[in-house]
Design a protein around this nucleic acid. Structure first.
Lengths: 218, 218
DNA sequence: AAGCCTATCAACACCGTGTCGAGAATGCCG
DNA sequence: CGGCATTCTCGACACGGTGTTGATAGGCTT
């Protein structure tokens, strides 16, 4: 806890050109408005004008703060990405002490990070249809999870607890993508979808059996 | 010439208002043009004008044949859906004779149906971001697969070959969605993605172990 | 007061969509 | 043949959304 970040990450620069100003408030207001609107409507149904009106400025004033609607979403996503990274690291630490429980906990954090920001998740996947930056950002997130899981699988194999039939990375990729897809379906109320009450059990079962189960018959 | 199909299938009606005409040819030309263009560019990068020019008619003439760009894609998808249904039924028949081989074969047909129409698949997922009809159509396809797989799992359980830990339908949903996501990633060259050579093995392994493996520890 | 940022907006140019009404082209029937 | 309907095509328009630009206002510094 006690996150004492004094230096703001010089990072992405998706927002306004210059830093520092009273209008920082406006910038944040745009972000929260976007998140609020995304709870009710899909990204495609939200115009720059909606965003501007939601904050009480004109459409063109919006462009002072963000170069486009997409940039707003990407900024929102950046935050979630950061949280996802933290959750991932926490899950890794846990593995050292209790490998068997780690899978379920990893899946749970996946669920929580995604679930806490459903509108943002929905927006970034929608955006990925048209925006390559969104695709790259998201694939970076996925890649982080996959690498993590690959390492974890390999650790279990080294320990002698898991068989070596498949390339660990392929297996990890399939499992992580399953989680993404299954949770996404739940969060946007698709049908068919796994029941939300059972989702953790279901995913955990598939993970465990796939990782520890031998590949008897080819 | 001599096109002697007098009764056109009363089917989907996505296309032109009236039936019957020499312009049937044009309608088909639009569809093949769309499929061709989708091989190079994403749906968002294709305008109605591109489609019209590709066929050699004016943009407004296009609207005589289809009410919108989306309708063209949906028509294309209808075909694939039909093929998917056929592949699905074939897989089911196979199960009766050899339950153990059926899983792999089912996954292979999934792979083939998807793979044979990559541009169309890409288009319908992109379209789902903005078009509810696309979402419904696709979820119908998924639901078909899930129901099929649920039955197959239950058959194996009745036979005493598979344990009953999880709700069969939840498990089936997770597995089918995994396939969708994993194959989709491969087909649109995402990273991370499972290696295309190993994908059938990887997916089959996860399916088998999840279906036949007991859920030892909760 | 002069000058410089920050912030705001109206007006404009642009692009893609979908509609409408005015006709060609084609074919059928009397 | 000539008249009429259906099929098809197009130019012109209205609309809605995006992103840019140039003019301007207010505040803070020096």
């Amino acid at each position: 806890m006690s996150t004492s970040e004094q230096i703001v990450r010089a990072a992405p620069s998706r927002g306004r050109r210059s830093a520092r100003a009273a209008g920082d408030e406006r910038e944040r207001a745009i972000l929260t408005t976007a998140e609020r609107l995304l709870e009710r409507r899909s990204l495609a149904e939200i115009s720059v004008d909606d965003l501007a009106q939601g904050v009480g400025i004109s459409r063109s004033a919006f462009y002072f703060y963000f170069p486009s609607k997409d940039a707003v979403v990407l900024t929102l996503v950046d935050r979630v990405v950061e949280q996802a990274g933290a959750a991932r690291d926490r899950a890794l630490e846990r593995q050292a002490s209790d490998p068997s429980a780690a899978w379920r906990e990893g899946i749970e954090s996946f669920y929580e990070v995604f679930g806490a920001h459903r509108p943002v998740i929905r927006a970034v996947t929608d955006l990925s249809a048209t925006n390559s930056e969104a695709r790259e950002l998201w694939s970076q997130v996925m890649d982080g999870w996959v690498s993590q899981v690959t390492e974890m699988i390999e650790a279990e194999r080294t320990r002698g607890a898991a068989p070596r039939d498949l390339a660990a990375r392929d297996l990890a990729t399939a499992l992580v993508q399953m989680n993404e897809r299954v949770l996404h379906a739940i969060f946007i109320d698709e049908t068919p979808a796994v029941g939300e009450r059972q989702v953790i059990d279901t995913l955990t079962h598939v993970w465990r059996s796939a990782i520890y189960g031998a590949c008897d018959e080819r």
